[in-house]
């Protein structure tokens, strides 16, 4: 029997946070298990496409940088998402394209230049431990990742990579898809939930103000600071929360909820960011300002379907 998966990389330096992410954990949210999956779905999907993988293949999500990997054999990879000043041996590594690397090559992530989260896909896919149908790594729930225990990469780890069926063709993502996250200014929000319970003034403020991305931001959610929003209801009976939901706790400062959010919650909500808007927000640096735009369902659905059609 031939080995169909082998060591692909060795971790020579662990950054603050590098997690294995497939599409996410589905069908178990009624048990209180969160979704997980890539915070930036768009960049994650492109990484797999450029590495010749199918949708859903597990990819590394590297937050802030710092990670250093050594290739243990010849591999084909793709880097997308944030520019974290990654170097391939002595040179700046090209992003948003298929890239061949050799055994012994070094990939060193620096610090954020543009965006917060980079995605590294490898042809054949990283091989994680599937827990409840997914290898998505959720630290808080101690689920998924390479060890099945939700652990961020550590120095000395060896990362297993499945043998690729074939060497993928060289591809470059269209320039329009290579995001400049510093340019993110507007996030599409689909109104819903308790939006009718917010005061008129607050609704005006919500969609006509600049919102600053707060330091308090992680894979559970991103806090926005700005005018204080007032809702006539302060708390509800807890109910299910879907991706991108924008909840407003009593302090009036909204929190957009991302992949690792708790499955239910009891704060009133304005609605949901579209999946692609949630992806963009996950790349925003603290201090960056954004605006919320009330989006129509038809155009949002068309845009999302186009994305899924081309990459899923």
């Amino acid at each position: 029997m031939s080995e169909s998966h082998l060591t692909g990389f060795r971790v020579s330096r662990a950054g603050p946070l590098a997690l294995l992410q497939d599409a996410g954990r589905f069908g178990v949210r009624h048990l209180g298990v969160t979704q997980g999956g890539p915070a930036d779905l768009h960049a994650w999907a492109w990484a797999n496409r450029l590495a010749g993988n199918t949708w859903g293949t597990a990819v590394l999500e590297i937050t802030f940088g710092g990670l250093e990997l050594v290739a243990e054999r010849d591999l084909t990879i793709a880097l997308t998402g944030a520019n974290l000043g990654v170097r391939h041996n002595q040179q700046a590594a090209p992003m948003w394209r298929t890239l061949a690397i050799r055994a012994g090559d070094r990939l060193a992530f620096g610090t954020p230049v543009n965006g917060l989260r980079a995605y590294l896909a490898v042809a054949g896919g990283f091989r994680g431990e599937t827990v409840m149908g997914s290898a998505a790594c959720v630290v808080r729930e101690q689920l998924g990742g390479f060890d099945g225990q939700g652990t961020s990469l550590r120095e000395g780890d060896t990362l297993t990579v499945n043998e690729a069926d074939s060497i993928p063709a060289d591809q470059i993502a269209p320039e329009s898809e290579q995001r400049d996250y510093r340019q993110t200014t507007t996030l599409n929000l689909l109104p819903g939930a308790q939006i009718a319970a917010f005061t008129g003034r607050s609704l005006f403020d919500a969609f006509n103000s600049e919102w600053e991305v707060d330091q308090r931001a992680d894979r559970m959610g991103v806090r926005l600071t700005g005018p204080r929003l007032q809702c006539t209801i302060s708390s509800l009976v807890s109910e299910g929360i879907s991706l991108g939901a924008v909840q407003v706790p009593p302090d009036g400062q909204p929190i957009a909820l991302l992949n690792d959010r708790q499955t239910i919650g009891g704060y009133p909500r304005l609605g949901n960011l579209t999946p692609l808007a949630a992806s963009l927000l996950a790349q925003c640096m603290p201090g960056q300002t954004v605006r919320l735009r009330a989006a129509g369902i038809d155009s949002a659905l068309r845009q999302h379907r186009q994305f899924l059609h081309s990459l899923r």
């Binding site: 069908g27 178990v28 949210r29 009624h30 979704q35 807890s238 109910e239 299910g240 999302h304 059609h309």
Partner: peptide, 22 residues
């Protein structure tokens, strides 16, 4: 169907938007 999240008074129904529209 992707997920069903029941809670005290509600059921959140999550579906695959590529195959069924809202």
């Amino acid at each position: 169907l992707v997920d069903l999240v029941p809670s005290y008074t509600t059921l959140l129904v999550v579906f695959d938007p590529l195959h069924i529209s809202p």
